[in-house]
Amino acid sequence: MSGPHDPPQGQPAAQPEASTEAVNRRAEVLPPNTTQASLLAAAAGVPKIRMRGVKKAFAGKVVLDGVDLEVPAQSSMVILGGSGSGKSVTIKSILGLVEPDEGVIEIDGVDVLRLPRRDREALGDRIGMLFQNGALFDSLPVWENVCFKLLAQKRIGRAQARDRAAEVLAQVGLAASVGDLSPSELSGGMQKRVALARAIAARPDIIFFDEPTTGLDPIMGAVIDGLIVDCVKKLGATAVSITHDMASARRIGDQAAMIYKGRIVWEGAAATLGHSGNAMVDQFANGEREGPIQMELRR
C-alpha cells in the first residue's frame, strides 16, 4: 500500500533539487544507458541502489533478515560473507530474479519492487551481470553471446553485432577470432572474459559481479579484476560484487559491506579489510578460525 508521502509509481523519491548544469555535467561521464531520472538522482546525491529492510525466506528458512544497504553512483561496492549468508540472494533481489517478502529496493530513488512488470523489465536494459560460472549460452557462438542483449532487443543487426562483439572482446583482451568459437572450447579464464564482455556490451550503468575470480588461478584472477576495474571506470558504471576472495575484494572495491545471517553487519572502505576494527570482518578477511563467526555444522 502506498503511504500519503510516497512518490508516484515509477518516479524518484523526494530528493534535493538538482541544477540543469549539474545534470549535464554528469551526463558527460555517465554511460549511454543512463536515463534522465538517473541523471537527476545522481546529481541530487541519491544512492544508485538503496535497500531498506529487505527480507526473504525460502520454505521458512530466513535468508535475508532486513538488509539495509546503499551503493553510491559510480562507486564499486563489494559484499562479503560466508556461504549461505545471503550474498547471492541480495543481488538476485536487486536484479529481480528473486522477489523479496518485505522491504524496499530503490534504483535511482525509484522503488523497483512497485514498478509494473514492463517497466521493471525495461530497467534490466541498464543492468549487466557477470555470473559465477559465466552462464554463457553453449548453443551460441561467443560473438552471439557477447551481443545477445543487443540482438535480442534488435538494437543492432547481426553484421553490426559481429563488429561490436570484436570491439568488446578486444576490451577484455581477446582476439576477434575467439568470437567464432563455442563457449565450451574456451578455458575458464577465457570464459570469464567473455562473460565480462557480455556484461558490458550493452553499456549498462549498473553491473553485478558474482564471485568473478572463483575457479581461476591467482594471476588470472588478478587479470580479471583489472579488467573489471578498467571496464567499470571506462563505462562510469556502478558496480556491486560478491566475493570470498579478499585480494579480489580489495582490488575491485571502493566500499565493502559484510553480510552475516541475512543482515549487513559492517560497511566501510574496502582498503581497510583485515584491519577494519570490526571483529567479524577481520576474522573473515584474515581467515581466522577463532572469532565471533562460528561455522554452523549440521549434526
Binding site: K92, L95, G96, L97, E121, A122, G124, D125, I127, G128, M129, F131, A135, L136, F137, F148, K149, A152, Q153, R198, F208
Partner: peptide, 8 residues
C-alpha cells in the same frame, strides 16, 4: 537467470 538479466 542470465537470459532475464539480458532483458529476454
Amino acid at each position: 537467470d542470465a537470459l532475464t538479466t539480458l532483458s529476454t
